[in-house]
Amino acid sequence: MATDEFDLSEPELTADDVLVLDDERFVPDTVAVVTGAASGIGRATAVALAANGLTVVGADIDEEGLDGTVDLAGDVGTDGEVLPVSTDLTDDDDVAAMIDAAAERGNLRYVANIAGMQHIASIPEFPMEKYDLLLDIMLRAPFLTAKLAMPHIRDTDDGEGAIGNMSSVHGRYATQDKAAYITAKHGLNGLTRSIAAEGAGRVRGFSVSVGYVLTPLMVNQIEDTAAERGISEREVVEDVMLGQARTKEPMTPAEVANLFVFGFSGHSKHLNGGDMLYDGGYSTTYE
């Protein structure tokens, strides 16, 4: 497949893209925290949850991007509100303030740990400051967020809720030049199971694993991967990103956001410690 056969720009989210469910807890008094809400999957998830009537605390270090998420929610016409909270996930005080802000708005029941980043380099060439930053954002911050959010979830009238973690096919197996990302995602799967183990069936933990999604993170890494491997950008898309997949197109942020909507809903009461794998057959088939 040639790269010009599909558009590599992030698609615009519309109301028709969003899964809306009838759920007794999807009301304005129910609060969800979404990290990484300034762009990509985090933005789409914040808007999708607001479209389902929830109050959403959208957290990100990118304040301008958060404003764009609020604007998008207005354009979509969501019943719920997106509240932007500037948050540096490497700052414990900021993470605590994010959770406090959510608890002050209503019944904190849901957390979507979505914030992520990428760095392409071989292990011998991988800068330790980048390794530490990726692990801080994608593993330590989700742990701290869960640590602070779980008591609030338990303090609701029925003590029920869920924490959803954005994992990846790279949480199941490894490819070259992404060691920090892969390490973080494997660890995040362990955190998901630990939440389930301690949640007593009432505070659920689940993860979402997808292949390649049309986000700024993915689009930006095409050039880096091409340079690191000495191949063309077209070969990155055809052979590296979608080579093993049976569904020969990337997912959209809205499609991933809808998995979090479903995962938080009452339809997913048996999704606990499990992983929602939507990778187009990337990690489960071979030729």
Rank of each mutant, 00 (worst) to 15 (best):
Q221R: 15
V82S: 10
P216E: 07
E129T: 08
A179W: 00
F6K: 06
E24V: 03
A257P: 14
E238C: 01
V169Y: 06
D158S: 11
G273T: 00
G266F: 00
M98L: 15
T175R: 09
A149T: 11
D23G: 09
V27H: 14
G65Y: 02
N272Y: 03
L8R: 10
V82K: 06
T156G: 13
H119A: 03
D224E: 14
V95Y: 04
D16E: 15
P127M: 00
L72V: 02
G205M: 00
L13P: 02
R109Y: 04
A200P: 00
D7P: 05
Y173L: 13
M251P: 07
I182D: 11
A50V: 04
L8E: 07
L49R: 03
F6L: 15
V240F: 14
G230A: 05
G77L: 04
T87E: 09
V57N: 11
L277M: 10
V111H: 07
V111W: 04
I222D: 14
D177S: 12
L214C: 08
V236S: 10
S268I: 01
A174M: 08
Y110T: 01
G164A: 15
L139V: 04
F262T: 09
G273D: 06
A141G: 11
T45Q: 10
K269G: 14
S207H: 06
M98N: 09
P11V: 01
A146V: 07
P28C: 13
A112W: 01
T90N: 12
A15K: 14
D7I: 01
A254H: 06
D132W: 00
P84W: 02
K185F: 03
V169E: 14
T183K: 08
T215D: 12
A162M: 07
V70T: 13
Y181L: 08
Q118W: 04
M241F: 14
V70P: 11
G274H: 04
D62Y: 02
I231P: 10
D22S: 15
M218S: 14
A146Y: 01
G53D: 06
D29M: 02
V56R: 08
E81A: 13
E24S: 15
G230Q: 04
D23F: 01
R25P: 03
I231Y: 12
G36L: 06
D224R: 06
V70L: 06
G211H: 11
D158I: 01
V169F: 09
L133G: 05
D92Y: 02
G243A: 12
A37C: 05
A121V: 02
G280S: 07
P250G: 10
L191W: 07
E64K: 11
A102F: 04
K185V: 06
P142K: 10
G171S: 11
P250L: 11
V208C: 09
N189V: 03
